[in-house]
Design a binder for these strands. Structure first.
Length: 286
DNA sequence: GCCCAGGAGTGTG
DNA sequence: CACACTCATGGG
């Protein structure tokens, strides 16, 4: 038995938003809709112009509000793009076709662990590691999928157990994070400034500058965070002729893009990956 | 087979 | 500070 709800959310492109590597558990079905676990339910989303259809099992009150939080419905995309356009003409051109690409707001714990697993792995593999972890340590949810393992549940897994989930050397990091972190601390970290949050994340094993920025942006909703991976290094070098250490590139990005640097990053990241697949380049230096 | 991956930790110059 | 090396392994 399922229920459907409708909300207005625009602009929105589900493929750009859920399929670009911000979050790893959403899949596109054959009919084009997108399905993923959300708050202990398997939810299906279908975008139709300004309308977003939500199909889920009955149980969660106001599923529309939950989906609105995931897709950051409160973000004024036009205002954000306007702000970025005033700051940089290269980005002004490149982001025009990407207005439906929204930053997601993931659960903090799921985001933290997911991007810890994401070190030195490609996106299909990251998705596989998380799926295996959910199957092994998550709980069956409405719709037949498995929820992301809770901190408490994952704490009971040994390093060997985790390694058997295909985590490789990341198993040790996950185990130690489980021992060191508590739900209360995660709650407390929500109130920290970006600088303080970042520092505390980096203090955890397996989390460096890049992962801390991903978790700050996609988990804790800090839109000024600007994660820099190998794709972003290439994009920054190609478009802005800037290269060097993470600290240097990060300083450049924050000065250049300001409080919405996270959106700038996602536009550039998406474009750089599409470019590698031979798609037309939306950005140009002219 | 080969190369790469939404890197981080550690050691060295 | 910058750089080099290691870590394990699946995907393309």
């Amino acid at each position: 038995m399922t229920t459907a709800a409708n909300i207005r959310l625009e602009p929105l492109n589900l493929e750009q938003t859920l399929g670009c590597g911000q979050t790893f558990r959403w899949r596109q079905l054959r009919d084009g809709s997108w399905q993923g676990p959300l708050k202990d339910q398997l939810v299906t989303l279908r975008s139709d112009g300004p309308h977003l259809q939500i199909v889920s099992s009955p149980g969660t009150p106001d599923i529309g509000r939950v989906v609105s939080e995931l897709l950051r419905a409160e973000d004024d995309i036009r205002a954000i793009q306007s702000s970025l356009s005033r700051r940089d003409h290269i980005l002004a051109k490149g982001m025009k076709g990407l207005s439906g690409l929204r930053i997601v707001k993931m659960d903090e714990w799921e985001c933290l662990l997911s991007f810890t697993l994401a070190t030195y792995a490609n996106i299909p593999r990251i998705a596989r590691m998380i799926d295996t972890l959910a199957l092994s340590y998550g709980s069956r949810i409405q719709g037949g999928a498995y929820s992301f393992p809770t901190l408490t549940r994952l704490r009971k897994a040994s390093v060997g157990d985790l390694r058997r989930c295909g985590l490789g050397y990341r198993a040790g990091y996950v185990h130690e994070i489980g021992e060191r972190l508590t739900a209360d601390e995660l709650e407390r970290m929500k109130e920290l400034s970006y600088a303080e949050l970042r520092k505390e994340l980096i203090a955890l094993p397996g989390i460096g500058e890049k992962v801390a920025d991903c978790v700050s942006l996609f988990g804790f909703g800090r839109l000024e965070a600007f994660p820099i991976d190998v794709w972003m290094e290439r994009a920054l070098k190609r478009l802005y002729k800037v290269q060097g250490t993470y600290k240097r590139l990060s300083a450049f990005a924050h000065e250049k893009f300001g409080p919405y640097a996270g959106y700038a990053q996602e536009y550039m990241y998406y474009n750089e990956r599409m470019r590698a697949r031979g798609a037309a380049c939306l950005f140009s230096k002219e």
